[in-house]
Write a protein that binds this DNA or RNA. Structure first.
Lengths: 230, 230
DNA sequence: GGAGTTATGGTCATTGTGACTATATGATGG
DNA sequence: CCATCATATAGTCACAATGACCATAACTCC
């Protein structure tokens, strides 16, 4: 029965969070990697993942490796692509179903790190095991494309947020400055956020309004397939 | 060794072609299905596909089942999604990497049909085996979304074509009429087509120009992953 | 030659958006 | 308590993209 399928199935996850760049202090994208503790590519950094258990859903497996690696729960989780090139792994042919996830920034700051788990800035990654550099590149492209037409940016933020915080997310992802007034106009027109009526005090300037995401107006994110969150 | 992975890997393909609707004569989307010749779902219609050979690339497997089913070569082929829900197939857990393909309309008219292969209009499908109705719905959504921002419509056409033919493709996919003049303006501005200088004579009206696709200006189709065609 | 039919070239109003100007408002420090 | 600072928020203006239309071109068919 095994003869009809000589490939092994794995699930990996590209996990994004925002945190300040060590040097510039600006918000940038970071992602956690795990060190390979066995051949092939022993010692190299790789995406968190593992073999797919026969009794676990794909998204659940991605979510689990995310939790095991970072101790976090994803605020956004979506299938990215399935990589199955014959040469991508030495030895047995491995087909990897890859997911990508966004986690909340303040939680990511508390996330577990250790000898074998470390966060890296997305634009300065080391050489990764297997074809994982290519996978991260594709995930970055998807994130940057999707943040412009979809409403996923809030996944980096908490329950309520200011438009400046939301704009920070967009600027970090898109790597370009956005005009505050124009950004506000666009976001308000899209109807994706709701004014909570509250303000955020404490800063030495006019206190900004706090917004909440408008769940009722979710834009087309994945079409007929509902977004797999959690 | 098999214990670490109790799932079976399959590859299926959603194949689209355009042909005139039997009743209205208007161009509509059609797709070929194959009849199940074994359990489960014996006798029901299903997407063409099969188990993934351990020594074949994913896209190659999709392309092969496409050829075996229709005798055609795809003009466009792209991975759609990987479906692996636990309950999607009775018995052993099956994970299907699904591709979607576009084939040329005039070739599709000649495509093989038989007792176990038949073309169906995409909007009037029977109840399919497994979760294949859901898969087709998703593929249709992807096609309709992508035809608006990408340049895949020409995959339904031959080497040269008139703007009316290209517009027919868009109208059939999007299921709504498009203004000829506006369509022309948009397409010409996009720079995706090149005037061949030739005209198509024979019709009882002003002879339309023949265009060719501009390969040099390919828009972002799949980001870092090159489109897998052929 | 005239009618029929689609091709193709314009116009006009509306909308979305980048660039930019101006005002609002709380915190802070004298 | 007031001036200052820094960001929040409201407008303005010009321009690009686009849907709705109108007008003319150029073949075939009768």
């Amino acid at each position: 029965m095994t003869s009809k399928n000589q490939s092994t199935l794995a699930v990996s996850t590209v996990i994004f969070a925002l945190r300040p760049d060590e040097a510039s202090g600006l918000m940038t994208l970071w992602l956690p990697l795990v060190r390979r503790i066995r051949e092939p590519h022993l010692g190299q950094w790789a995406l968190p993942g593992g073999w797919l258990p026969g009794d676990e859903e794909l998204a659940a497996a991605a979510s689990r490796t995310l939790r095991e690696t970072t101790g976090l729960a994803p605020k956004y989780l979506e299938q990215l692509y399935t990589f199955g090139d014959l040469g991508r792994s030495p030895g047995n042919r491995v087909v990897s179903v890859v997911y990508w996830a966004l986690v909340q920034s303040d939680e990511a700051a508390l996330a577990a790190v250790g000898e074998n788990v470390q966060w890296f800035p997305a634009d300065r990654l080391p050489e990764l095991a297997f074809d994982h550099n290519r996978i991260v590149d594709y995930a970055l492209w998807r994130l940057r494309t999707k943040v412009e037409y979809s409403r996923i940016a809030h996944a980096f933020l908490g329950e309520t947020f200011t438009l400046a915080q939301l704009r920070d997310v967009h600027e970090a992802v898109l790597q370009k400055p956005l005009d505050p007034a124009n950004f506000r106009r666009t976001v308000e027109a899209s109807g994706t956020v709701v004014d909570t009526g509250q303000h955020l005090a404490g800063a030495r300037h006019r206190p900004p309004r706090l917004y909440r995401y408008n769940d009722s107006s979710r834009l087309a994110d994945q079409g007929p397939l509902g977004p797999s969150i959690g």
